[in-house]
Design a protein around this nucleic acid. Structure first.
Lengths: 186, 186
DNA sequence: CGTTTCGCTCAACAAGCGTAGAGTGAAAAG
DNA sequence: CTTTTCACTCTACGCTTGTTGAGCGAAACG
């Protein structure tokens, strides 16, 4: 036993990953302001100064922690699939990074900018599948509907949505969203 | 000129009101954590210590500032009226106190509790006008739809919703919400 | 008038924060 | 082996925060 010694680069990689995971978890749980470098360091079982050394500042750490992998954003399939795909992703197991961003989007300027960007992209994709001069506006309303449900479900944890399977949410929401697509889609 | 001297009680009343207004404005703008007693005091042109003397603590000041007047919550009219009433109130000129609560609801525990309470009441009222065993769930989804739109419009200030008159939002949203009421309502 | 009340300010405290720089000890390199 | 590198820690600085208690000065009161 114990010939599994870790190389230096390996140890560093793991520490950095632990810090990032702890950061995502704490940012997602309590938001940017209440999450402290010290708290993140303690959760990652690491000295606070190490966090600074690796990420430079709390702000940069947040940016890296919140970074959404482009793969996480749904592609541009057919709209209805798209909606359901979005529903499943948005309503179900959102990545910790997205939760972290959403948790802070109302109180932290950078998180707000990030949220506007992500939501803007989703609105673009949706509006691309729709027609009408107010397509963009309707696409925005669809996106905000999903945002509202996600906020209530994942962040406020309303009793009314506790333990409801995502398929049922999707089922109930579909006609409602369909009413916003306009008459022209599939 | 200048015989309009203010009585002591009058001065006190006005100071307290100025503090509360400044608090509401700051809480609504930057949220609980970033709003400081000093900032509120400066906005109210008052010494920070006075804020403490009148309200005891930052937390108590927040509670008083966020308090929603019962009159501000719409009564229990017919559902469709109710929806439009809610729409007009929720989408249009929300009172500063509601914005303050919403701004902090994702990051400040007390604000979250307050939000759950207000949303719960609205869900109750809505569900009261609906039938079906999942009426409460559908009512919750309607409420969260409105929440999402309000967040995007008033707090994130998405470009897509900038300057859109509330009647148009109500018009676009109505069929969508109607799809959630179920087949039984008016 | 003198005395009391009280709205209000000044100055300061302790705690917690993000952050910086010097140092340590073991792994890597020669 | 010696030397260098580098992941990591210790200690501390400066700042802001919420909060406190003593004090001032004008209004209220007799």
């Amino acid at each position: 036993m114990g010939e599994n010694v870790l190389t230096r680069a390996e140890r560093r990689r793991r520490s950095e990953a632990r810090i990032l995971d702890a950061a995502r978890a704490l940012f997602a749980e309590v938001g940017y302001e209440r999450a402290t470098i010290r708290g993140i360091a303690k959760a990652a079982e690491v000295d606070p100064a190490l966090v600074m050394q690796y990420f430079g500042s709390k702000q940069e750490l947040f940016q890296q922690a919140v970074q959404v992998s482009p793969a996480a954003e749904p592609g541009a399939e057919e709209l209805v699939e798209h909606l359901l795909g979005t529903l499943n992703v948005k309503l179900g197991e959102l990545p910790q990074s997205s939760l972290a961003m959403m948790r802070s989007m109302l109180t932290h300027p950078e998180a707000a900018a990030s949220a506007r960007e992500v939501l803007g992209r989703q609105i673009d994709r949706l509006a691309g599948s729709m027609t009408g001069d107010d397509a963009r506006l309707r696409a925005a309303l669809m996106t905000l509907t999903l945002l509202g449900v996600t906020v209530g479900h994942q962040l406020l944890e309303l009793d009314e949505l506790r333990g409801v399977p995502q398929e049922e949410l999707a089922r109930l929401l579909r006609p409602s969203l369909r009413a916003l697509t306009g008459p022209d889609v599939s």
